[in-house]
């Protein structure tokens, strides 16, 4: 019985570890402290390209498939292949450029820190003091 309880406990611990916790981060120059889901969608689909102060929004995304990436796109309601199709359409219509793909969370944090107007997403535990967090997303 003790063994079974221990096993259940272990499964619960492991499951909580698998939850993807995502932080939506921006460069400190960005003139807002929170963000709505619809705004995120507008920025990542390229519909809106300016912050409220008129400065350009520079979108960055994670290159590799990961739980963080999956959780982020789940949250905004688009799968990666649909996003790719939206960005390609913007590019071939001359209406926008696809976001730069960043190799990993650490590189993403550095990029956001050093790029005015930048917005991206990383695992919650990778956030540094050099960026501003607008939103936490937790995927069960």
């Amino acid at each position: 019985m003790k063994n079974i309880l221990f096993l259940l406990f272990l499964i619960l611990i492991l499951q909580s570890g698998l939850k993807a916790q995502v932080a939506v981060i921006v460069n400190k120059s960005v003139p807002q402290d929170t963000i709505k889901k619809t705004e995120l969608l507008d920025f990542f689909t390229g519909d809106i390209k300016e912050w409220p102060d008129g400065k350009p929004v520079i979108v960055k995304e994670l290159k590799a498939k990961s739980k963080v990436r999956e959780a982020f796109y789940d949250y905004i309601g688009k799968n990666p292949s649909r996003m790719k199709s939206i960005w390609l359409k913007k590019m071939l219509s001359g209406e926008g450029d696809p976001p730069e793909s960043i190799t990993d969370d650490t590189a993403m944090v550095k990029k956001i820190e050093t790029t005015p107007g930048a917005i991206g997403f990383v695992a919650k535990d990778k956030v540094s003091d050099g960026v501003k967090v607008l939103l936490f997303i937790q995927k069960d």
């Binding site: 350009p56 590019m91 071939l92 926008g96 450029d97 696809p98 976001p99 730069e100």
Partner: peptide, 16 residues
Amino acid sequence: KLFAQHDNSSLKIFGY
């Protein structure tokens, strides 16, 4: 490089 938002320094050439 294609995937660079607001990299306005260069002429971009692409196609299909």
